[in-house]
Design a protein around this nucleic acid. Sequence first.
DNA 1: CTCGGTTAGTTGAATGATCAATCAAGGCCG
DNA 2: CGGCCTTGATTGATCATTCAACTAACCGAG
Lengths: 203, 203
Amino acid sequence: MAPPDTRTRIVLAAMDLFFLKGFGSTSVADILSRSQVNSGSLYHFFPGKQDVLLAVLEFYRDGIREMLLDPAWQGVDDPIERIFALLGAYRTMLVESDCTYGCPIGSLALELHEPDPAVRALLEANFDAWTGAIEGCLAAGADRLPPDIDRRALAEFALTAMEGGVMQARTARDIARFDRTVDQLRHHFTMLRSGAGAPFTAA
Amino acid sequence: MAPPDTRTRIVLAAMDLFFLKGFGSTSVADILSRSQVNSGSLYHFFPGKQDVLLAVLEFYRDGIREMLLDPAWQGVDDPIERIFALLGAYRTMLVESDCTYGCPIGSLALELHEPDPAVRALLEANFDAWTGAIEGCLAAGADRLPPDIDRRALAEFALTAMEGGVMQARTARDIARFDRTVDQLRHHFTMLRSGAGAPFTAA
DNA sequence: CTCGGTTAGTTGAATGATCAATCAAGGCCG
DNA sequence: CGGCCTTGATTGATCATTCAACTAACCGAG
């Protein structure tokens, strides 16, 4: 295994730092010392700090399967259970960090109030990759769900539940807030499956 | 009406700025120029920038009724509809800001990765005031919900839906993401009311 | 009423830290 | 030689915070 090249080292270091401390609280000097690179080299590959963020968001979007989905879905074949296995992966991250580290994309999305269009587009692309994966699960498990279900809306709702649950667990430093959110989402699925209420239609 | 005193001017200006641009992106100089106050005066009332944030969070928590609930609930008496009227207020804020301005507390909660304990406690207190209000609605409308419902968990789930919907709408610059989340939550309530699925119990 | 003193609040230039970004010089490898 | 990459001190901007001097209001003593 060849050692990673300079550009990759920068991206990996910056990913760790941006995800852990956020964009604004990470200085270029932080990235330099963690990646063992000099400032001149960084600015040789990237016009500026923001372009490092773009590279990190591209890297994460392209690696979502290997970095997030595959580990979370190891040994889980049922497509609906995979949705909750993915939420379980976020639960693990919360617990292992004392409810400090949640969803890095969500944190960045709310930290950057007026993001550059390119940054915003990549944040959206990361969310879309996530909901796309969930939508795939819903499609694979369609036989156990009402046929008229809006898969896109339900996948987005799973993202909503994850992000909202992470936010509350982090703020309260209490994993129970995340667990209660997931329980509610599970109940949502249970009720959907039993075909309760009118068939869902967008307003 | 007496003009607001210096301390209040600072808190009001800082609230606007923290809610609009975040804590990190707001400089003390920003607060000074918006409040028309000199740095010496600010530091006469507050030991530092973070203490201004504490004052803002206290002010907002104490004023949630006047600033948020009362306007949102004008003309809405049904307790369950009040929940969705509150979500409607966030929708209005999103639309009026081109999906830029969402929930200020949520933004701050995710921006501050390692908040001072006092700051974290006040963020939590703001969330608790919010969910407490929703819980009150659920209690007032208890006759139209299954009796064994976990009101706390359901109120937290409403917060989850709001925060997750705001996050996605902001990131995608598309109000439809918020609307779909609210639709899902409404459907959640519909299904609950019809008593579908096993009675909910926490895991 | 008035003088002296005390306190609360104000002023804004100065300070030092931190930060992103620059660049001239040099090394490596074809 | 020449293009690609690296070095790291330097720059200038921005930032939170400090401080010494100033004003205004009040209060009690004479």
